[in-house]
């Protein structure tokens, strides 16, 4: 059974001990800055001068870089090739071969898009690497996010690895009975149903009893819930969050002002 429930890596660090909402606010404001802020190089600057240093401070630098490369490299390669060749407004040809020609407008567009996506994905990655999902959800429900929402998310995170494990078991069982899962398209589609059927039905059967179980634990009782875990927060962090919110609003305002002129 895969024991990794999320990207979270439990370590002691200044970033880990930040309040989850602060990290969430940071992620959102970095993304807003990257997409709406001025200048072609702002996203790269945010990545190298904010995100990378924070990942090092959070002692997750290695995983941060590895994961973002794994997730983004294929997309970036594709983006650069396709955009430099097919960007609609491309005029300045850098080089051409056969019927294709690469334009510098395309390359710039690819660079802009790629660096924005880089900031978007790695902002979330930083949050996820340093925050346990249940801490995040606990903190959010303490601040008024409905308890059922946080129930759904945390319980999904636990059901998925179980179902993956069950899928592997069923697959092995079927392979040992000689069911072919390779070969041509028809074969592969045919192999899908006997795998998916048992998987889906066995997990749906559990739903009724689990509903009884959480009712028995007073989950839908209309009282204000308390929380076992106390998640630290400080005045300083609250101020920081307001600053980030203001900065994001200013950036969006700047973008609107720009487009009006």
């Amino acid at each position: 059974m895969p024991d990794r429930l999320s990207f979270f890596i439990p370590r002691e660090s200044r970033v880990h001990s930040l309040n989850p909402l602060t990290k969430l606010a940071l992620a959102f404001s970095l993304i807003i800055l990257a997409f709406f802020g001025p200048g072609l190089f702002l996203p790269v600057a945010l990545y190298f001068f904010v995100l990378v240093p924070l990942s090092l401070l959070g002692k997750v630098g290695k995983e941060f870089l590895q994961t973002s490369f794994r997730l983004l490299l294929p997309l970036f390669a594709f983006l650069f090739v396709m955009q430099s060749l097919f960007y609609p407004g491309g005029e300045t040809v850098i080089f051409s071969f056969w019927i294709f020609s690469a334009t510098s407008e395309g390359v710039v567009f690819a660079f802009r898009t790629a660096t924005r996506i880089l900031v978007m994905v790695s902002s979330f990655l930083l949050l996820l690497l340093t925050t346990h999902p249940s801490t995040l959800m606990n903190d959010l429900s303490r601040r008024g996010v409905p308890a059922s929402l946080s129930y759904i998310i945390t319980s999904t995170l636990q059901i998925i690895p179980q179902m993956q494990a069950r899928a592997v078991t069923i697959q092995d069982a079927q392979r040992s009975r000689g069911l072919d899962t390779g070969g041509n398209l028809i074969n592969r589609i045919r192999s899908l149903l006997p795998l998916v059927g048992p998987l889906v039905f066995s997990s749906l059967v559990d739903v009724e009893e689990r509903a009884i179980a959480i009712e028995a634990r007073a989950f839908t009782l209309p009282v204000k819930k308390t929380s076992l875990i106390d998640i630290p927060d400080s005045r300083g962090e609250a101020v920081l969050r307001w600053v980030m919110a203001a900065l994001s609003l200013m950036t969006i305002g700047y973008r609107i002002w720009l487009s009006l002129n």
Binding site: L5, S134, S155
Partner: peptide
């Protein structure tokens, strides 16, 4: 319950509710 990651928290779930 499915929403808790340790036995300790699991037992506390009803009390939180």
């Amino acid at each position: 319950s499915g929403s808790k990651f340790t036995v300790y928290e699991e037992i506390a779930f009803g009390l939180e509710n």
